[in-house]
Deep mutational scan, measured.
Amino acid sequence: KAKLLVLLYAFVATDADTICIGYHANNSTDTVDTILEKNVAVTHSVNLLEDSHNGKLCKLKGIAPLQLGKCNITGWLLGNPECDSLLPARSWSYIVETPNSENGACYPGDLIDYEELREQLSSVSSLERFEIFPKESSWPNHTFNGVTVSCSHRGKSSFYRNLLWLTKKGDSYPKLTNSYVNNKGKEVLVLWGVHHPSSSDEQQSLYSNGNAYVSVASSNYNRRFTPEIAARPKVRDQHGRMNYYWTLLEPGDTIIFEATGNLIAPWYAFALSRGFESGIITSNASMHECNTKCQTPQGAINSNLPFQNIHPVTIGECPKYVRSTKLRMVTGLRNIPSIQYRGLFGAIAGFIEGGWTGMIDGWYGYHHQNEQGSGYAADQKSTQNAINGITNKVNSVIEKMNTQFTAVGKEFNNLEKRMENLNKKVDDGFLDIWTYNAELLVLLENERTLDFHDLNVKNLYEKVKSQLKNNAKEIGNGCFEFYHKCDNECMESVRNGTYDYPKYSEESKLNR
């Protein structure tokens, strides 16, 4: 008799109507990190870190770059004969040098303040090359056809396309004075040089004057150069050297050249137009028929994500570079809930034993079982409120962090190594801060989002509990077992918050 009662009780308990509160689960393989956990499985997430590029040089917003090819900045601007293909260059979106560009200054020497000139050019998007001192009329008392084997072109001695090597005419090199007034309405880049012979005999042979000088002056520039005559090792078949100089001439300003020898005179100059998204990159990537809004030396990035880990040097509207390998923000729920887990921000989770793959029309909802059958029903209101809140948060985070910009490298010469090392340390410090901030932001927001979901499920549970009161009992896994019969209409009233407690209280009292 006792065995019969136990079996009867078990049958009745199993047959009781139930309603459970749960949440969506799926077959997603997404994982995120939080402050407290690593690799948390979630139903949905968004990636904030771009880690792919196309490996190509592309047009930037429809404008092609200027590819210097086998030449570098120095060779292009001075007019190395091997860089003749660059003479027609007028406009570009950015400038590309190759790491091993070999054609710079063909006659050995240095372009002074080269690093600063590169910085200036990094904001130039177009130029006009014009004859600042016409070759045939500007130097009537001097020979202007100086050439050298060091600047050979097609097997013949030649010289820079933008400079003139002035030497004596006959047996004399009379003092020369020439000036140019900038009437271009924009900055003009003027380049010139000073020749330093290897011996007094060479000085006399070329310029006749043993104590020659070169003077260059404008409103913002004033220097006097004296040739340094000295024996030097042979470089590119030359014992002599040429140093090259430049200045930016403001609109309306005048530049005056005065010399008694050794002047490498300007022939062509450049009127410059600035462009905020221009820059110089060093890259071996090849040019393709493609378009982008962000270019790196590795390749083009076409992404609206706020961060990238491809390269710190970028041109155009680019994500911020960070050292992170993963920045994924959760938008959905835990896919593998932890039992009795309390989140960092106070939300209680884990009283549900598992997510439901059968509930596909919402994030949170119900599963019921009664004599009429069983089924899932999503709670659309709480789901939609959660979707709206999380979507707004993700968009806000992306908008705040998605300050796209150009980031170019800084140039230092060989004598500025300590400054370069200090600059690298400062840049590394800023990069570490950006990386830390980005990672911390994602970790915190992921923790908040998961706790937010847990709290929403808990609130749904409490909503049902407050309606049923003692007409049902909690069975410990997020479910309630009714003390009365609850048909589909009754189940719907529980879900929509209109459950009639008094209607079922007498039946429940008897069954309790």
Rank of each mutant, 00 (worst) to 15 (best):
V12N: 05
L86S: 07
R118P: 03
C83S: 07
C106R: 04
N209P: 07
N243S: 10
R223C: 09
S85L: 12
L36M: 04
L86E: 03
R90Q: 12
I132Y: 09
S205M: 13
E50F: 11
K184V: 14
Y245T: 03
N220F: 00
T143D: 12
L7I: 13
G69V: 02
I63E: 09
G240D: 08
L263G: 01
I255P: 00
Y245Q: 05
F133C: 07
K56W: 12
N220P: 00
Y23L: 04
F144M: 09
K70Q: 12
G146D: 07
G146V: 09
Q238T: 10
T254W: 07
A25C: 14
H195T: 04
L111G: 00
S219C: 05
Q238P: 00
W267K: 07
L77S: 15
N145M: 08
N72A: 09
K135W: 08
K168C: 10
W246I: 01
K59W: 07
D33R: 08
E97M: 07
N162Q: 07
P99H: 14
I112M: 12
S91I: 13
A105K: 00
L68N: 06
N72P: 02
K184W: 00
H195G: 02
D171F: 01
L163G: 04
S91L: 11
L121V: 11
L127D: 00
D15Y: 09
S205K: 04
G170W: 02
S150C: 09
L248T: 12
F159Y: 11
L77H: 04
T34L: 04
G22I: 03
E119G: 03
D51G: 12
M242W: 02
I21A: 09
L36F: 10
F130K: 07
I229N: 11
C83L: 00
A16Q: 10
L66Q: 06
G55I: 14
N80H: 15
H142L: 07
E82H: 06
P266M: 12
L8A: 01
N178K: 03
D84F: 05
V216F: 06
L36D: 14
S28Q: 10
A16S: 13
L117M: 12
G185H: 09
A16T: 05
L78W: 08
N47F: 08
S138P: 00
E250F: 12
A230E: 00
N182P: 04
Y268K: 07
C83P: 06
W192C: 01
T29G: 06
L78F: 04
S273Y: 11
E119A: 08
Y268R: 06
S219P: 08
T98N: 01
N141L: 04
F133K: 10
S150I: 04
A16N: 10
L5T: 07
Y114C: 01
L66H: 12
F130I: 14
Y221D: 05
A105Q: 04
A217I: 11
D33K: 03
E136C: 00
E258C: 10
T148E: 01
T43I: 03
A89T: 15
K186W: 00
N222S: 03
